[in-house]
Design a protein around this nucleic acid. Structure first.
Length: 260
DNA sequence: CGTTTTTGACCAGCGC
DNA sequence: GCGCTGGTCAAAAACG
């Protein structure tokens, strides 16, 4: 009889352990899903960064600018050869306009669908000062429709507030102004490594961990992800973040995410 | 009613 | 010379 009871106790203990393991397994699976999605985001971000970098490097020799120079009319007001290109991220779902806010006022004078890109190209002239020769072309990036490519042609004959420029030394390059502040127009790529937890104390260790590891050189994302999963401090930090997000996350977020 | 946007027509350069 | 293409014009529509 006693042997039977101890056996039953053992079974119960094993069942409890099994339950615990199942729960842990579930958590781990969830973590893996999270890891996968984050990995995809990272990969997409990496590709995007590469593409943007390449575009910036090649920008002075790009077809876009070659076209502009090739087709510049000689009968018009002399346009300075200065051409600069910037990339602006927009929320393409909500913002279908070809508007790039750079501090200047622009008047649209034309729109064309070009051969190389199905998205239309919009033509703007600076309307902040009469006779300002600056023109701007805006078109969605072929690779990433959430990116707007703005090409500036010429030099403003006024400052950003619209007043005329008398002193050429202070106006050597007014295009530099929007360029220098480019980061303010580019909403930062916010990688949600904290699972959107509003609790700073919980997101810190995880973010710090990722930031620290991000500095290491990895050949590819998969290698990086593998190294992360092997690291016990990472899993601890991730578990904390996941647990926190499950505890604190509003139910709505999960619902909306699952519906999309 | 003045300003801005839209959009079809037109023009100029380029390649064949 | 002709067709294609990007850039600009300008009248009409839309907007504040």
């Amino acid at each position: 009889m006693e042997a039977h009871t101890s056996c039953q106790e053992k079974v119960e203990t094993l069942q409890t352990d099994l339950k615990c393991l199942r729960k842990e397994n579930e958590t781990l699976r969830f973590m893996l899903d999270v890891m996968n999605s984050k990995c995809n985001i990272l990969q997409a971000h990496l590709q995007e960064t590469k593409a943007a970098g390449q575009m910036d490097i090649n920008f002075s020799q790009s077809g876009f600018d070659k076209e502009a120079n090739k087709r510049a009319r000689t009968s018009e007001v002399p346009i300075h050869n200065k051409t600069q290109r910037i990339l602006v991220r927009t929320d393409s779902d909500q913002d279908n306009s070809l508007t790039v806010r750079d501090g200047y006022q622009w008047r649209k004078y034309g729109q064309k669908v070009t051969k190389d890109n199905p998205s239309p190209r919009a033509y703007f002239r600076c309307s902040m000062a009469p006779g300002c020769p600056v023109k701007k072309k805006v078109q969605r990036c072929l690779e990433d429709k959430s990116l707007l490519v703005a090409t500036y042609d010429g030099k403003h004959n006024h400052d950003v507030h619209g007043s005329s420029l008398g002193d050429s030394s202070s106006s050597s390059d007014t295009i530099r102004s929007p360029m220098a502040n480019i980061n303010s127009f580019l909403p930062a790529m916010a990688l949600d490594l904290s699972l959107s937890s509003p609790h700073q104390e919980n997101r810190r260790p995880f973010q710090n961990f990722v930031e620290e590891h991000h500095n290491n050189s990895y050949n590819n994302i998969a290698e990086y992800a593998a190294s992360l999963t092997k690291d016990p401090t990472f899993t601890t930090a991730l578990a904390a973040a996941v647990a926190s997000s499950i505890t604190h996350q509003p139910k709505k977020r999960f619902e909306s995410e699952h519906h999309t």
